[in-house]
Design a protein around this nucleic acid. Structure first.
Lengths: 357, 357
DNA sequence: GAACGGGGTTGACACGTTTTAATCGCTCGG
DNA sequence: CCGAGCGATTAAAACGTGTCAACCCCGTTC
C-alpha cells in the first residue's frame, strides 16, 4: 500500500511546473528498453509477455508514475470502459441506492460510471444522452423521463447498449429492469381500504412519469376490487416529487372545501413526508384522522414523526441486476438475449397506515 | 424542440444493424463539400467560418446524426471537458445537494461530471482518483477521506487542478471550499448547554474524518467556555455515519450503566435520526429527557418524529462555488489565485433541542 | 496594373494507444 | 547441421479530431 517505492531515482517523477513532458507508453518503453507495443501488452495481455520483461516494464511504470491515457485507448478501441447512468433525481434516496448498486457492480468489473441527472426534464435528459454519446460510453443505464425512452434509440443505433432502469418495456429489443408499480399501488391502497378508508387521496408527481401513472392504475384497481368507482380517488398532481411539494399538497388538502380524506396514498416517500408534516402541523392525527402510505421505503421513513408505512422496492438489486445485464450485453452483443426483469414490491407496514389488521 | 427536421433525405441517417460505418468529421465534410478542417472549425470556432458554409456544415451534421468523438477530441486537445467529483457518501443528502450544485454549475459551462464515491474508504478513493486520471478529466473536486488529501497531489503534478471540497487546507497551493465545522460543533453544544444540559454525549463517525474531529473540537470548546472539562463529553465513535449506526449508538446509550446523558450531539443528521429512533422506541422523551442536535440539516430532519434541531451548511453554494473556482483555474491556470473559502454554519432551532431559549 | 492584405479554407501532421503482420532468436526433430 | 516451428518482441498503420502554416480568391491601394 505504500507509495514511496520510487527506488533510487528521485529525478524520475515528472516535475510539477514546467518541463517533464507527459509520460506515455513511449517513455515507459524507452526506460524499460522495450518497444511501445510490449508495454501495451503488459497492460492489456500480461500473459503474452515474458515474466522478466513484464517486471522490468512494471518497474518503469511505477518509476515514471505512468497512467494510461484513456482517451487514446478509447479512440483506438472504439469504446471506453465507462458506463453512463442517467437517473431522474439524485435527491431521491431511491436513486442513490440504485446508483450504489450500479457503481459497486461496475467497479468490480473495472468500469467507471458517469452519473448524470435528468431532474425530470426531457431537455436535460437529451443533453445528457448527447454527452454520453460523445464520451463513447460503453453502455448506458437509463431511467427515462416519461415516454421519452425513444431518445435512447439514438444510442442503440450507434451500437451503445442501453438498459432501461425502473422502466418496463414491451420491446423485446432491449433489456429492462423494473419493479411492478401497478402491483405496488394496489398493495398500498388495498391496505388503506382494509383499514376502513373509503375516501382516498392520491398525491402524485407529473402524470408524464410512468411511475406515477402505474401506481395510480394500481390504486384504481384496488378501489375497483373493493367495489368503489374511480371517483373515490381524489387526485393531487404536483409538479415535483419532493417534501416541499408534499407539504404543499397537504396544505391543499387542508384548505379544501371537502372534508379531509380518510387516507392518503403518495407516489413516493418524499411527498408523503411533506404531507405528513403539513397535516401534523394542523393538528391532524395520523393515522387516526388520516391514514398515510408512501412509496419507496427510503431510510428516513422509519424515523418519521409517525413511522411511515410504505412500499419497498429492491433498489440496490435493481442497480446491480441492471448493470450485470448491461455488461453482459457489452461483452457479447450478438449472443446476448434481452431480458425484461420485473421485481415485485413489498408492503412495509408501519404505524401511519393505521390498525395492524 | 422538434427533432424530425431531417429534411428530404431519409436515407441519410445511419442504419441500425450492419453497414453505415461510424460517421465522423470526415463524412460530414464530404457531404457538405468542405474539408474536415472546416468542420472542426464550425464545431470549435464558429465565428471563423462564413455563415453560408457554416449552415451547410450544420445541415450535414444534422442529416448524418454526427456526434463528435470526445476521445479523439480529448486526445488531441490534451484534456477533456469533464470534471471529476469524488464524494464521501452518496447516501448522505448533504453530498447529493453538493453534487446538485456542482452538476448544475458545470452543466451551464458545458462540462460533464463524473461522479464517484469513496464510501469512506481510502482504497476506493485511490482507485477512483486513478480512474479520473486515466480519463484525463479537466479538473477534480475532491472530498478527501481523512488526511489522504495528499493522494490528490498525483493529479496536481499531472497538471489537473484540484479543489478540496468540504475540507479546509492550510496549503496556499490549492483552492478549498469548506464550512467551519469547529464553529458548527460549538454552536450545537452551546445550545445544549444553554438548555441546561451538563452531561453531553457526542455520537460520531470514524475519528479519521476531519468533519468529525472538527465538530468534536467545537463541542469541547463550548464545554470549556461553560467551565466544563472534556470529561463532560461522553463519546461514541461509530464505524459509519448512517441511521443504522445511529440506532446502534442509541441502544448503546440505553444499555450503558450510567444514566442517560442530558443531551446528545450527533456528527450528522443521519446518526441523529437513528439515535432518535432508538431513544423514542425505548420510551425516552425528546427533548424532555434527552435533548438532541444533529448536523447538516438535511431535508428529512424537519419531518422527523421530533423535528430535529440541526446545524445547517450552505450545501448547494458549496458545490457551486467550488466548481466556479475549479473552472476558473482550468481556464487560466497561471493567472489563477488560489482561494480558501470558508462558510459559516447556522443553527436551525427545532423542537429536539428543547426549550426555545 | 501590380503589389498588398485579409478573410476563408485547406492539407497535413500530431495526439497516445492498440493491433496486426512481420521479424528475431531459439529449440528440437530429422 | 539445417530447417521448421514457436514464443517473444517489434515496427508500422490505424483511430477521429484539433491546429497551424500555407494557400487562394477578391477587393483595395498606390
Amino acid at each position: 500500500m505504500r507509495t514511496d517505492e520510487t527506488g533510487g531515482d528521485p529525478a524520475a517523477r515528472p516535475r510539477a511546473g514546467t518541463g517533464a513532458r507527459t509520460v506515455g507508453i513511449k517513455q515507459v518503453a524507452e526506460r524499460a528498453g522495450v518497444s511501445p507495443g510490449t508495454v501495451s501488452n503488459v497492460l492489456n495481455r500480461p500473459e503474452r509477455v515474458a515474466a522478466a520483461t513484464r517486471e522490468r516494464v512494471e518497474r518503469a511504470i511505477r518509476d515514471l508514475g505512468f497512467v494510461r491515457n484513456g482517451s487514446a485507448s478509447t479512440l483506438r478501441a472504439g469504446h471506453s470502459s465507462t458506463l453512463g447512468l442517467l437517473v431522474l433525481d439524485l435527491a431521491n434516496p431511491f436513486f442513490t441506492d440504485v446508483a450504489r448498486g450500479v457503481e459497486e457492480t461496475a467497479g468490480e468489473r473495472g468500469y467507471a460510471v458517469i452519473l448524470a441527472t435528468s431532474a425530470d426534464s426531457a431537455e436535460r435528459q437529451a443533453r445528457n444522452i448527447r454527452v454520453l454519446a460523445e464520451q463513447r460510453v460503453r453502455g448506458v443505464l437509463l431511467t427515462p423521463v416519461g415516454d421519452e425512452a425513444e431518445r435512447a434509440d439514438m444510442l442503440r443505433e450507434r451500437g451503445v447498449p442501453v438498459v432501461l432502469l425502473d422502466h418496463p418495456t414491451p420491446r423485446a429489443s432491449q433489456c429492462s429492469v423494473s419493479v411492478d408499480d401497478v402491483a405496488g399501488g394496489e398493495l398500498a391502497v388495498r391496505r388503506l381500504l382494509d383499514g376502513g378508508a373509503r375516501d382516498v387521496a392520491y398525491v402524485t408527481g407529473p402524470a408524464s412519469l410512468r411511475q406515477c401513472a402505474d401506481r395510480r392504475r394500481g390504486a384504481l384497481r384496488a378501489l375497483r376490487a373493493a367495489g368503489l368507482g374511480r371517483d373515490a380517488l381524489r387526485e393531487l398532481t404536483m409538479p415535483a416529487m419532493n417534501p416541499r411539494a408534499g407539504h404543499e399538497a397537504g396544505q391543499r388538502l387542508l384548505a379544501d372545501d371537502r372534508p379531509l380524506p380518510d387516507a392518503v396514498f403518495c407516489a413516493n416517500d418524499l411527498l408523503a413526508l411533506g404531507v405528513m408534516r403539513a397535516l401534523l402541523a394542523a393538528g391532524v392525527k395520523i393515522p387516526q384522522d388520516v391514514a398515510l402510505i408512501g412509496y419507496d421505503d427510503i431510510e428516513f421513513s422509519a424515523a418519521a414523526a409517525v413511522p411511515l408505512c410504505s412500499v419497498r422496492q429492491p433498489t440496490y438489486q435493481l442497480g446491480r441486476i441492471a448493470t450485470e445485464l448491461l455488461l453482459e450485453e457489452c461483452d457479447d452483443p450478438s449472443g446476448h438475449a434481452h431480458q425484461q426483469v420485473m421485481f415485485q414490491p413489498e408492503l412495509v407496514v408501519r404505524e401511519s397506515s393505521g390498525g395492524s389488521a
